[in-house]
Design a binder for these strands. Structure first.
Lengths: 343, 343
DNA sequence: TTGAAAGCGCTAACAC
DNA sequence: GTGTTAGCGCTTTCAA
């Protein structure tokens, strides 16, 4: 065996014509064998099979789908950043469903760039994917109208589309925020800080709205401190929390808009040895190792990807179904070291 | 705007023939416009462009690549589990490179199933991907020989291929383990425990070999404790560490084969309030939040994906290049709360 | 500069 | 049961 050098590249892959010639049959017989059609003489089938094996024939499924007019058996997933575990979990769940449908998954990251998002979509449509799963960024998905009308359906995950209707699978951000605040209120906290990431993101707006709703219902909205800590510098979140705690009348409890903010808050609180009740969004793998007791708003991330993919395949089969919107429930969980003994 | 119901699906997407008819030109002129050929009369080009926009024409790149014989501008990535941040980071880095080459990325997970891996590869080859990036599972990749000979190159990441040669990008697992052990020796530890995941994985074997080499060089190999803690139950790692610490002559330092084992070890050590020096493989996002000082062997995961993709595109362009193997260096870093004050 | 014809690899429709 | 023909949507070739 030659392990040191790549084999010289063959001029081209063998086609059905090559196989037919080699087996002494017509190309149509080769096609039938390749597609497992049963009405082929066993002896011929065997001869064709032998020729295929000898030549290393691999049916060109690109050509097959072109001629047959059947689907390409591919779907596209457009997310914000594949390296982010949240999105990659969605991707993995969607891929699982796709596999059940013998479909391959294109994955592409828009990187929070709306133009890049529409470029990716255009490219995938040119490749005639059967459908798209999109985590939309930016404030306008109306460019999708044309693609959807042309028969490439889209399903939206984590954020609803803007500028057009469509199926979506979302987290119950408002409800989650309300439950978290309700817990804090039940524990007797009346001065509560809310730290969010940039409110440009729909998700953050929803979480903030939910928190505000619950505080307002308790008549405590004007005692609350709302702070926006856009994630740019390494520890904006920690600094935001620091400022809160240094205020004239500091909050006794803080709700963090995502896990990055919660981590920053934990760091700051542990550093200064403060006793502040911490809660936050996102339940992550190492949350139970946080060196401070926290309560997190969690949700089943794989469900987002799974439902989205299932919704997409349903729409591919039944294009006329009315749009639907699925909401994934949230739960409250105690995490962090000494979770059993909160302050 | 109708937001409540999906638009009725058009019968089919318009083709160049439709555009040509609509613009009153030949199909070839449409083709030229679609491909940005400059030798087209500006007035005609404009007429064609208008027709394209009006009909919502999207060039079918599948058909284009079939006829032209040019590549499909797709590559396939076969990893073990897309939901695992390690692999999704590789995927994201590879996708970035692919984007530079105007190539779309198929991502598929083999789930540690060797048969599934070869099925995915076969499917991707049928789709005529330009090349493959593979994290191999199982003990035999010789099935790839045929595909590579037929002109679908493959590059291996994180684990070398077995049964055939090929380009690979690997972590310096042995070297990393040696550095970690050397650090422990320098700190005066002479009885060291090594806890690995299942040794079926090449990566774990390498790490164990590296640790053994360094211990042997110091003449301390027979004083070391090697334990295999295959990841099945929730806390095998914690239990393995517990047994070590309960032994007659317990180790004063432990090297963990991956971050899951390290987390389990930290949990166990914190629980019993023991003072054991902990080190382990993998530097992860929340490592600095571990409630116990540890030293980790880290490496730049994105480099794995980036180098692999670059290697693949080079091989696609220059198939005859001799195989190469790239090794990614490791580093040692102090992590965990109170990292400045190790026991 | 433009277009007609052929054909990429395969399958549908119809012979035989 | 098997083969022939045409054609999927596009690009190549070559003639006008």
């Amino acid at each position: 065996m030659n392990d040191r050098d790549p084999a010289p590249r063959r001029t081209r892959r063998p086609t059905m014509v090559d196989v037919a010639r080699s087996a002494g049959v017509s190309i149509k017989t080769v096609s039938r064998v390749a597609n497992g059609v049963s009405t082929v003489d066993p002896e011929l089938a065997e001869r064709v099979g032998a020729a295929m094996r000898e030549l290393g024939f691999r049916r060109n499924s690109v050509a097959a789908s072109l001629r047959s007019g059947r689907s390409t058996a591919t779907i596209g997933l457009v997310i914000l950043d594949l390296a982010n575990p949240f999105y990659s979990t969605i991707a993995a769940a969607a891929a699982r469903v796709a596999q059940r449908f013998d479909t391959q998954l294109f994955t592409a990251s828009s990187g929070w760039d709306a133009r890049r998002e529409s470029e990716i979509v255009a490219d995938l449509c040119q490749r005639r994917v059967d459908g798209l799963i999109i985590v939309p960024t930016g404030e306008d998905q109306s460019y999708l109208r044309a693609e959807i009308d042309q028969g490439t359906p889209a399903v939206f995950v984590d954020r609803p589309p803007t500028g057009l209707g469509g199926d979506s699978v979302l987290i119950d951000n408002r409800g989650g925020a309300r439950t978290a605040v309700r817990r804090l209120l039940a524990e007797g906290h009346s001065r509560i800080g809310i730290v969010t990431d940039s409110l440009n993101a729909w998700t953050m707006r929803e979480r903030r709205i939910g928190a505000h709703e619950e505080l307002e219902a308790a008549g405590l909205a004007d005692r609350a401190l709302f702070v926006e800590a856009p994630f740019d510098a390494p520890d904006v979140a920690g600094e935001a929390v620091a400022r809160m705690l240094d205020a004239a009348s500091p909050p006794t409890a803080v709700l963090c808009g995502n896990n990055r903010i919660l981590s920053g808050a934990v760091g700051e609180v542990v550093r200064r040895g403060a006793r502040v009740r911490l809660t936050g969004f996102d339940d992550f793998e190492f949350a139970h190792l946080l060196p401070y007791p926290v309560t997190v708003v969690g949700y089943d991330t794989p469900s987002l990807g799974r439902f989205a993919a299932e919704l997409l395949f349903r729409r591919i089969r039944e294009p006329e179904t009315p749009f639907s919107s699925t909401t994934i429930a949230t739960y409250l969980a105690d995490r962090g070291i000494a979770a059993a003994d909160p302050p």
